[in-house]
Deep mutational scan, measured.
Amino acid sequence: TLFEALYDYEARTEDDLSFHKGEKFQILNSSEGDWWEVRSLTTGETGYIPSPYLA
């Protein structure tokens, strides 16, 4: 399933992933509550992002 970022986000820890509004992601793991592990389709990087920032 693909999701798109609604807002920009700046990583706060080394496990987080910074991203920009409009960036698209593949969800790798959504079992961690509000923090999902994703792969950016723009950069190929993986990390955790806050799920409320996605649509």
Rank of each mutant, 00 (worst) to 15 (best):
W36I: 06
F3T: 03
R12V: 12
P52A: 15
D8M: 03
I27M: 03
S51I: 06
G44V: 02
H20K: 14
D8K: 03
F25G: 00
D16S: 14
T46D: 07
L17T: 15
Y7Q: 13
D15N: 14
K24W: 15
F3W: 15
I27S: 00
A5V: 04
V38K: 00
E4A: 08
A55T: 11
W36F: 04
N29Q: 06
D8C: 11
Y48G: 00
R39V: 07
T43C: 05
G44W: 03
E4Y: 15
T13G: 14
G47I: 06
L2F: 13
Y9A: 01
R39P: 00
E37C: 14
L54Y: 07
G22L: 01
Y9K: 07
L2I: 14
A55Y: 09
L17H: 02
F19S: 02
D34T: 09
E32N: 14
A11Y: 03
K21E: 03
T43A: 01
I49D: 01
I49L: 03
Y9Q: 02
L54C: 09
F25D: 00
G47H: 05
N29H: 11
D16G: 15
R12Y: 07
R39I: 07
S40W: 04
T1V: 14
Y7G: 04
T42Y: 08
P52T: 15
S51A: 14
D34L: 13
F19V: 08
E23D: 14
D8S: 08
S51P: 07
S51N: 14
G22Q: 01
Q26A: 08
D15A: 12
L41F: 06
Y48H: 06
E23I: 02
F3A: 05
T42N: 06
Y53A: 12
E37V: 10
E4T: 15
E23S: 03
E32Y: 12
L28K: 13
A5M: 05
S18N: 06
Q26K: 05
S40I: 13
A55D: 08
D34H: 09
E14V: 10
T1N: 11
L41R: 00
L6T: 14
S18L: 04
F25I: 02
K24A: 05
Q26T: 08
S40P: 02
L2G: 12
A11P: 03
S51H: 06
E37M: 14
E37I: 12
L6W: 11
V38C: 03
N29K: 05
W36S: 00
G47K: 05
E4M: 11
L2E: 06
Q26N: 03
T1E: 12
E45H: 10
N29C: 10
T43D: 01
A5Y: 02
W35C: 09
E45Q: 13
F19G: 01
E10G: 03
F3E: 01
S18H: 07
D16M: 14
Y7E: 05
F25V: 00
R39D: 00
I49A: 09
P52K: 15
E45A: 12
G33Y: 09
G22H: 03
P50K: 09
E45S: 08
Q26S: 05
W36L: 05
E10T: 11
S51T: 06
L2H: 06
E4W: 11
E32C: 14
R39E: 05
A5N: 01
K21I: 13
A55R: 08
F25K: 00
G44E: 02
L41T: 06
S18Y: 05
